[in-house]
Structures are given as C-alpha cells and as structure tokens.
C-alpha cells in the first residue's frame, strides 16, 4: 500500500525542529531512520498531517564518553554505533543487544534514538535502556531540556512519556564496571525479527557477591519490563550459590506477556523461565572461566 498524503519538512537544526513541533500542535510526526514509521505509513496505521524529517540535522549524531557515562546522540545510525570499537568496549551489553536490531539494511538507516523512543515492546533497545539504567534526554521549545529515566519512559506499546512537542536528542548510558557480565538472549522466528521472548541485562560481581544487577525483558508485556524481584534477590548473593531457576521464577513473575499470532502467553512464560535461568547461569560461568 501507499502512504496517505502528508506535508514534509526537513529542518536543519534542533531549534528549527522544535519550532515546527510546537507549532504543529500534535499533528506532526518525527521521521528518524524510518524503519518503523515507514511501514506504519504504508499500512496507513499512521496518517500524520506533517512529517518532520530530522535526518538533515547534523547536530544529533555522534557518540561521546565521560568517566561514568556514554552519550549517544539520538540520530546516530544503528550501523555506525555497532561498528564503533570504543562504544563496544564501553557498553558491551548495549552492543550485544544492538546486534539483534533489525537487519543490516535496516540498521543502515535506523537510529538509536528512534528505536529507544518508539517504545515497541518487543524491541531490544528500549529494554537495554531500562536494564542499564539509561536516561533519555528530551528537548522542547517551550520547556527546554529534561531527562527521563528509561524505566519511567514507557507506558504501553508505542506509548511513552514523550509529549507531542518534544524531541529525544540523546540517550545517556551509565558505564558499568569493566568486568560486568552480559546477560542476553533472544528467541525470534528469524534473526532480526521482533523477539518472541527477549532478555537483556548486566550483572556485576564484586568480592564474590552480586553488587549490581540490571535485567529487563522484551516481548514479555506491553512495555520493556524490569525484572525487579530477580534483581533484588540477586543483590548481595554470593555468585557461586545463585539458584538460577529460582531467580528465573521471580523474573517471570514480573512479566505480563500476551497472546498473538506468533506465540501464546503461556509459551512466552515457559520459554522465558528457561531462557532466563540458562542465560543467567551461562553469564555467571563466563566469570568463573575468566
């Protein structure tokens, strides 16, 4: 199908984009990489009056590091981030998740900010942001800048804290210690498809005990879901005596999966339980091997 007609503007700066959004009074839709929006337009599930294309704004691309966080500008292409060795070293969990986003051809256009801010519940980037404790940097013309914690950002499928006049300009990922363990697993019908069940997280062990844990599900409910009970149970536990199955049970208790044409909620829960236990166990073993 073809998209319904719309107006199109391509501002050259963030200020200009914010002006357009403010004046459109909610009728505008932002076009970043377009790898989700373009299908929605083609299927006429989205019929905006005006498309604000932010691809011509040079100022919202790039990756910067400080001692304790990494700032990824929203317009940074997924393929560019994936190929950045410094980012790989600073944010291994993020990179692991990013490798599963879409396909080579869609990562060449798709952006980090787009993926994080759309709030597709089965997508990797929102869950990675929640698990790692990222903050989303948001600008609007009338209210300036604000930062929202990723875990407070998602309300439901494609429903987020972003107001119609706001633009996500960057995502800030805290740096975890260098020896943090990566926890990642995705079950999908084909590589690059949306997850039926997905798990992403980081676990840091210090002096033999879990000192920090951030774990989130994707594809297991209306939003990315932080496995809070599992995190709480892990904290302070000796790494050698973790009962991964019991933790998985707690993690699944926090989910709210639904039935769709690809899988039932029962399937998602039972696969999730096993995947969680096995993935956590494997992550802990990589530490013992190291």
């Amino acid at each position: 199908m073809k998209a319904a007609p719309f107006d199109y503007v391509a501002p050259g700066s963030v200020a200009e984009a914010l002006d357009t959004l403010a004046e459109a009074g909610g009728g505008a839709t932002l076009l970043a990489g377009g790898q989700t929006l373009m299908p929605l337009l083609a299927l006429r599930m989205s019929q905006p009056f005006i498309i604000v294309d932010i691809n011509r704004i040079e100022g919202i691309r790039g990756i910067g590091h400080t001692a304790d966080s990494t700032r990824i500008a929203a317009g940074t292409r997924q393929a560019v981030a994936l190929a950045d060795p410094q980012l790989g070293a600073a944010q291994p969990v993020f990179i692991r998740a990013l490798g599963h986003v879409g396909h080579h051809q869609t990562r060449n256009r798709g952006t980090i900010g787009g993926s994080v801010s759309l709030g597709e519940p089965a997508a990797e980037m929102p869950a990675a942001a929640v698990a790692l404790g990222a903050e989303i940097e948001i600008h609007s013309r009338d209210r300036g800048m604000r930062r929202v914690r990723a875990e407070d950002f998602y309300f439901g499928p494609y429903m987020t804290a972003l107001e119609p006049d706001e633009l996500v300009t960057a995502i800030h990922y805290p740096r975890w210690p260098a020896d943090t363990l990566t926890v990642f697993r995705e079950v999908a019908q084909r590589p690059g498809d949306f997850a039926l069940v997905g798990l992403v997280g980081a676990v840091h062990v210090a002096n033999g005990k879990v000192a920090r844990a951030g774990l989130a599900w994707f594809g297991m409910g209306p939003t990315p879901i932080r496995a809070r009970q599992a995190e709480a149970a892990l904290l302070g536990t000796a790494a050698g005596s973790i009962d991964c199955r019991a933790i998985a049970e707690l993690a699944v208790a926090d989910t709210a999966p639904f039935d769709d044409s690809h899988a039932t909620s029962h399937y998602r829960r039972s696969v999730g339980r096993r995947v969680f236990a096995r993935t956590l166990d494997e992550a802990l073993k990589t530490r013992q091997a190291a």
Binding site: Y8, A10, L31, G34, M38, D53, N108, R109
Partner: peptide, 11 residues
C-alpha cells in the same frame, strides 16, 4: 544497502 520502500524519495 537500504530498503528503498523505507525511505522517501525526498530524503
């Protein structure tokens, strides 16, 4: 390599 159905001509 990009999908030409997911990009506008004007882009």
């Amino acid at each position: 390599a990009v999908r030409s159905c997911l990009m506008l001509a004007v882009q």
